[in-house]
Computed example of a mutant assay.
Amino acid sequence: MTTASPTAAGSGASATQAFRATRHDTAAVTAERISDVVSAVLAGVHNAIREKKLTYPEFQAAKQWLIEVGEGGEWPLFLDVFVEHEVEHVAAETQSGTKGSILGPYYLPDQVRLPSVATLPMRSDEKGTPLVLSGQVRDTEGKPLAGAELDLWQADGDGYYSGFAPHLPDGNLRGVIVTDDEGRFTVTTIRPAPYQIPTDGPTGKLIEAAGWHPWRPAHLHLLVRAPGHRKITTQLYFQGGDWLDSDVAQATKPELVLNPQPGDDGTLHAEYDFVLERDAA
């Protein structure tokens, strides 16, 4: 049992702070593009109102919920869980290499750099089955990418992320692994647990009211990058894992599912290679 549980407000505040502190790829947007996209979004809302015959009490409830999401700092959580997977899907239409997935709200930059063979920082009594993930980073022509970085983070054996749960030490189960001269890496960690997104705030209230479940399947988060190549944002899942086919964030893909095999000592071993495409000239 954990000694403390993260609240939606606490996780939301941490996610908002992390988002603001991290550089994000942005582009100048023309007035025409803003008008086009916003008009399409509003048209979708208007169509839903007409099709579902929304009542004034329902409209007022929605307005109150939107206010509560903002006051609770839950916009990163809500957008990452319910919207980001479609943005990623559109981006993938023009990309090659390893399949991507959502970033999610729990990324924290500037973690400890580790060699190609490394163990993620963890507590001495870290709960969970040991897991060794190994592989190689290559370009789309098969050339190994020496010095590529795998920025890896994950939940612990209880489903909590460091930086978003008060009982976890900073940097727990987070690190940046740098590949060797052949683009290879081997990282030792633990198999993460599935987790439910915080449900004590307005996002959780929406999930409960709609009769949905709040669970994400167990997964490893990765940002894989190398100079001159497109950064990949992805997640690796586990074959047979709970919620794999009903992820609340709709972010799973069959190409991203690991099938770890146990060694003689019970440690799980999995291999996964990453392929990065070159940046557009």
Rank of each mutant, 00 (worst) to 15 (best):
G147R: 06
P57E: 15
A18Y: 05
P198W: 06
D156V: 02
F19W: 15
D181V: 12
D264P: 11
D265E: 01
E182C: 05
W65T: 07
S11F: 10
A193W: 07
F59R: 12
P227C: 04
T188F: 06
V137A: 14
L173M: 04
I232W: 01
V81A: 11
T140W: 02
G104V: 08
H269W: 10
E126A: 14
T22A: 01
L258Q: 04
E141S: 06
A61D: 08
T233M: 08
E271P: 06
D156M: 04
T30C: 07
G73Q: 04
Y195F: 14
T26P: 03
S96R: 00
V69H: 08
S5V: 13
E277P: 11
T16D: 10
T119F: 05
L236H: 02
T140D: 01
D110Q: 15
D247T: 06
K143A: 09
A21W: 00
G10S: 11
V187F: 07
Q17R: 01
T16S: 12
S11K: 04
E149Y: 02
L54R: 02
P57I: 15
L236N: 03
N47R: 03
A62H: 06
A218W: 01
A28E: 03
V37A: 12
A43W: 03
L168A: 04
W65S: 08
G142W: 03
I102K: 00
A8Y: 10
S5R: 09
D200V: 00
V87D: 13
K52D: 00
L206R: 14
W75I: 10
F59D: 06
V176S: 08
R230M: 11
R216W: 01
I67M: 12
Y56C: 03
T7F: 14
L256H: 04
G10K: 11
K53A: 14
A13F: 07
L120P: 02
H229A: 07
L268V: 14
Q136W: 12
A270C: 11
S5D: 11
I102N: 13
T7I: 13
S35R: 09
H89R: 15
V248R: 05
P76L: 02
L133S: 08
R230T: 13
Q196E: 15
I190H: 07
